[in-house]
Amino acid sequence: MNRHRGRRGAALMEFAMALPFALTLFIGIADFSVYFWRQTQMEEVARFTAAQIGPLATGYLAADEAGLQRYARLLESDARAAFARKNLRIGLSRHYACPLPTGAEESLSPDPRGCPAERVYLRVTGDENLEPILRPLRAMGYPKSSFWRHVIRLR
């Protein structure tokens, strides 16, 4: 009887030893799944945002800094509603580049240079904070936020 109880205790002990590893593994899987899912969703948000910007390119070209920020808030609220992500943030900034005769271009500048056939780009960034259930994952390089950045040519 005593020996039987001892064996049961050993099995319980083994289970207790294995449980933290199994739990860590499964919570880790959940945390990384959330990260990849968010990152994939961010890509969808990027495409959604680009589709919103495309037909209104002239508005984004003409807007001043305050206007761009207003557009950013509008895009943000549309994307938040469409993807049910209430902490999503979107930022916009306009950049300029002078084309080279080959078709390539000089590096981007935040101010217009006034060169012929100047190219105008809109940099769109989006991010949302990520909080893993397993906090030690942070030390292993788990990202602080899901993030994307795209540069759309306006002109």
Partner: peptide
């Protein structure tokens, strides 16, 4: 085509 390729690559 070459000019357009380069502008695509720039983007």
């Amino acid at each position: 085509l070459e000019f357009l390729s380069e502008s695509a690559r720039a983007s």
